[in-house]
Design a protein around this nucleic acid. Structure first.
Length: 224
DNA sequence: CTAATGATGTCCT
DNA sequence: GGACATCATTAGA
């Protein structure tokens, strides 16, 4: 399991990887780090490894929030790549996306699960301030094991909308994946249908655009 | 173990 | 009115 990554800050995330096709961006985001600094209440520095994402394409993707064109809610999806798109789901949970492709082409990648690396006590404090507190029995690796839990654990609110996630000066940003130890096998990537989009119909329902790192204990739910 | 359900804002048909 | 890019808890097999 990843450990002891606190020594030196990892390099920022390359915006060029987000400016291209969304499925490639989604693939590149697996293994990247999500970094929270200057948390409003929990303080400290929170870092985790992105282990599960979903790709939402603009235009033809009937499951995407952008399918009806720009609205006040989805406006960030039409902006430049690398920015945050945060929204409220089910009236109570927040989800965070990373905007992809060129400005004007609405697309984004939803972060569905993150494996905690640093600032675990701060993550627990952050969860405690939400509707979905962690209990003492919640294992560390389950603290951000779902899209709503990622936002809860990292203290992500609608105020994070539009933040530049490729800028390490942002209170919330991305960092490049950690180095692969010599001789270690590359991660196996799982692909399956996206979760909770039954209304979209085919082909959106069956498109295998949910991606994850095989074997992570932090996945939101198993793959088929 | 799986299934049902409540909470609850926003946008859809 | 219905469904939702969700989560936790309770009821049941």
């Amino acid at each position: 399991m990843p450990q002891a990554t606190a020594g030196r800050p990892p390099p920022p995330f390359d915006r060029a990887l987000l400016a291209g096709p969304t499925l490639e961006a989604a693939r590149a985001l697996l293994g990247a780090r999500l970094v929270r600094v200057g948390h409003p209440t929990a303080g400290d520095r929170i870092v985790g490894r992105i282990v599960e994402v979903e790709a939402y394409l603009g235009g033809d993707d009937r499951a995407s929030h952008a399918r009806m064109g720009p609205t006040p809610r989805n406006r960030p999806m039409f902006g430049p790549p690398g920015r945050a798109y945060v929204y409220l789901v089910y009236g109570m949970h927040r989800c965070i996306n990373i905007v992809t492709e060129q400005e004007g082409r609405a697309a984004a990648v939803l972060i569905r699960a993150v494996e905690p690396l640093e600032g675990i006590p701060a993550m627990r404090r952050s969860r405690a301030a939400t509707r979905t507190p962690a209990t003492p029995r919640t294992p560390d690796h389950r603290l951000a094991a779902g899209p709503g839990l990622v936002a809860a654990a990292f203290g992500i609110g609608l105020d994070c909308n539009g933040l530049d996630l490729c800028d390490t000066a942002s209170p919330l940003h991305l960092a490049a994946p950690g180095p692969i130890a010599h001789g270690q096998p590359a991660d196996t990537v799982l692909a399956g249908p996206r979760v909770g989009i039954g209304q979209a119909g085919e082909p959106a329902v069956s498109a295998p655009w949910r991606l994850a790192i095989a074997g992570s204990p932090a996945l939101s739910r198993p793959f088929a």
